[in-house]
C-alpha cells in the first residue's frame, strides 16, 4: 500500500497520466514528471520535445499546467556546457509557449545525458479526465499521426531525409494544449496521451477494467506515411515488438491489416497525440473542430462497444 489520504483523487493505485490531489472544493493539483535520453540530435529541439512531452500528461487530464522544474543529468566531463544550455533553452521556449513558468530544478552529473521536467497544473476536481471511463457508444479520436518511433529508428540509420526529420521533430515538439482546450467543449468521457506503449498499448490501459471493448478502423488511423515504408524495411524499434507481445491476448487484428500498419499501431511514440473518447454523436464535430484549430491530422479512428470482454479489435 502507498501512503495516501482522502484528497488523493488519482494516485498510484490506478496509474493514470498524472497524479491529482484536491486542495479545495474548486482546485486540485495535477502533478507529473517525465525525463528521457535524447531522441533527436539537435539539443534545442530535444529540449522542446522533452518539455512538450512532460506537459502532455497535464493536458491529457484536461488540466492547465502552471509551473515546471527542470530535471537534468549531464555528462559534464565529456560534453560541452553549450549543449546543456541549448537543451534548457528549448525547454524554456516550449513552456513559455504553454504559458507555464519555470520555478526551479535540479541537475546531477551522470554518464548519460537526460532531460525532462516535473510539471504541476490545476483543474477543478469534478472535471478531471481520467483514462478509465470508456462508455459504450463513444467514438475514439486521435490528434497526432503515429510512427515517430519507426521514423526515429530510420533517422538513427541515416535513412530519413532532412525534410522528414524536420517534420517529425516539429510534430513531437507540438503541444497538446490546443487539442485539450478544444475537447473541453465536447462530451468527453476519457482521455490519455499516446506515448511509449503505442496506440494499442495506451488503448489497452483504457479498456482494462472498463467493461467495454473497442473496435479500431485501421484505415482511418492517422499515420506518418513514411513510417509504413520504413516498417516494411525493418526499422521497427524493439519497443514496438514488446508492446505487441504485452497486449497480444486482448488484441485481435484482422489479417487484411497490412503488417506495416500493425507495426505502426504498437510503435512507441514520443510526445504523441491525445486519444479521446467522446460521445459518438459528437465525434465528427470534435474531429472537425480540432482540424479547424490547426490539429490537421485529427481523426475518428474507432468506437467503444458494449462487449464486456474488454477486447481490442482492429479491422
Amino acid at each position: 500500500m502507498f501512503p495516501t489520504d482522502e484528497n488523493v483523487l488519482i494516485g498510484l493505485d490506478r496509474a493514470d497520466d498524472a497524479g491529482v490531489y484536491r486542495i479545495t472544493d474548486d482546485i486540485a493539483l495535477i502533478q507529473t514528471v517525465d525525463f528521457f535520453t535524447p531522441i533527436v540530435d539537435d539539443p534545442y529541439w530535444f529540449g522542446q520535445i522533452a518539455a512538450a512531452n512532460a506537459l502532455s500528461d497535464v493536458y491529457a487530464m484536461s488540466g492547465i499546467p502552471k509551473t515546471a522544474m527542470n530535471l537534468v543529468a549531464f555528462p559534464a566531463e565529456e560534453m560541452e556546457l553549450t549543449v546543456l544550455r541549448q537543451i534548457i533553452q528549448g525547454g524554456i521556449d516550449k513552456i513559455r509557449e504553454a504559458g507555464v513558468v519555470l520555478i526551479g530544478g535540479h541537475s546531477i552529473v551522470d554518464k548519460e545525458l537526460k532531460y525532462g521536467l516535473s510539471v504541476t497544473g490545476i483543474i477543478h476536481p469534478a472535471k478531471v479526465l481520467a483514462k478509465k471511463n470508456l462508455r459504450p457508444g463513444d467514438s475514439l479520436v486521435l490528434t497526432k499521426p503515429l510512427g515517430t518511433g519507426i521514423i526515429n529508428t530510420a533517422i538513427k540509420a541515416g535513412l530519413a531525409s532532412a525534410e522528414l526529420t524536420d517534420r517529425v521533430t516539429r510534430l513531437m515538439a507540438e503541444l497538446n494544449r490546443d487539442a485539450a482546450r478544444i475537447m473541453e467543449n465536447f462530451d468527453v468521457g476519457a482521455c490519455t496521451d499516446v506515448t511509449g506503449f503505442g496506440l494499442l498499448g495506451h488503448l489497452a490501459e483504457m479498456v482494462c477494467g472498463s467493461g467495454t471493448s473497442v473496435r479500431i478502423e485501421s484505415a482511418k488511423v492517422p499515420v506518418i506515411a513514411e513510417a509504413l515504408e520504413f516498417a516494411n524495411m525493418g526499422f521497427v524499434p524493439a519497443g514496438a515488438y514488446k508492446n505487441k507481445e504485452f497486449r497480444e491476448k486482448m488484441t485481435a487484428c484482422a489479417e487484411t491489416v497490412p503488417r506495416s500498419l500493425q507495426d505502426v499501431l504498437v510503435d512507441p511514440q514520443t510526445s504523441g497525440g491525445l486519444l479521446i473518447s467522446v460521445g459518438g454523436s459528437q465525434a465528427a464535430s470534435l474531429a472537425c473542430a480540432l482540424q479547424a484549430g490547426g490539429i490537421v491530422d485529427a481523426a475518428v479512428i474507432g468506437e467503444v462497444t458494449a462487449d464486456p470482454a474488454e477486447k481490442i479489435s482492429v479491422v
Binding site: 516498417a231 516494411n232 524495411m233 525493418g234 526499422f235 521497427v236 524499434p237 524493439a238 515488438y241 503488417r259
Partner: peptide, 15 residues
C-alpha cells in the same frame, strides 16, 4: 541475437 533483429532483418530482406 535478438527477436527484434530477427523480425527486422526478415522485413528488410523481403522488402
Amino acid at each position: 541475437d535478438t527477436d527484434t533483429s530477427k523480425e527486422n532483418v526478415s522485413r528488410a530482406a523481403e522488402s
